[in-house]
Amino acid sequence: MNKKTIVIDILRYRPEMDEKPFTQSFEVPYIEDTSILEALQYIKDHLDSTISFRWSCRMAICGSCGLMIDNIPKLGCKAFLRDYYPNKISLEPLANFPIERDLVVVMDDFMQKLESVKPYLIPGDNACMSSGEYQQTPLQMEKYKQFSMCINCGLCYAACPQYGLDNNFIGPAALALLARYDRDSRDAGSAQRMKILNQEEGVWGCTFVGYCSTVCPKKVDPAAAIQLLKVESSKDYLIGLFKPD
């Protein structure tokens, strides 16, 4: 009996022996409900145990298995062989990040960007423990909830040519995260974060390509967050003209 198979091309890079990445082809059994991640696991278990890739939850919540599938940033667990069969599938590490090894990228810069936007509640001056817990209405939560759904997978950075052209740009996920805290009714850190936004590498590094929102697996819509933050930054600029601090 002829079993159906599908060919997967993987961009490989082994820092200890390779000068530059090269493509290696694998043939894996085709089953309709096999995800790309499961296909990678099949390759590692049965064909080549030296291949490296990140993964954890298998259900689009951990954000580990981002990679370029046919040149589009996707989560390996959320894309399936059936979406490509019978064509060949090309897998590459996430674009715009340095390659650590095979499909694993260096995410240090991304993590640093996330940290740089002060992603935590900054209490107001008169907030104290004795005043009890922060309370929030469902409506107040609705204002930022979308931007809190980010799983830090980095797909939006791989989709952002502005980050690719100049990685000083803070980037989509970090700015969406900034919007998430900015819009939180319990937060009083807007003025501190405004300084981050106002920079050239803040919101002004974005030219509204909009691909970040298209590839986001959690529908966070960083592009919308950034446009609205541009409006806020512009208002702050106008105020700054009349009231320099």
Binding site: Y13, P15, E16, K20, P21, N71, I72, A95, N96, P98, I99, E100, V106, P161, G164, L165, V209, Y211, T214
Partner: peptide, 19 residues
Amino acid sequence: RKPYIRKLETNWWLKTGFY
């Protein structure tokens, strides 16, 4: 460790329909 850095090619905008 020897991270490999890929440069965004000048014709990046021809590679995906979206771009």
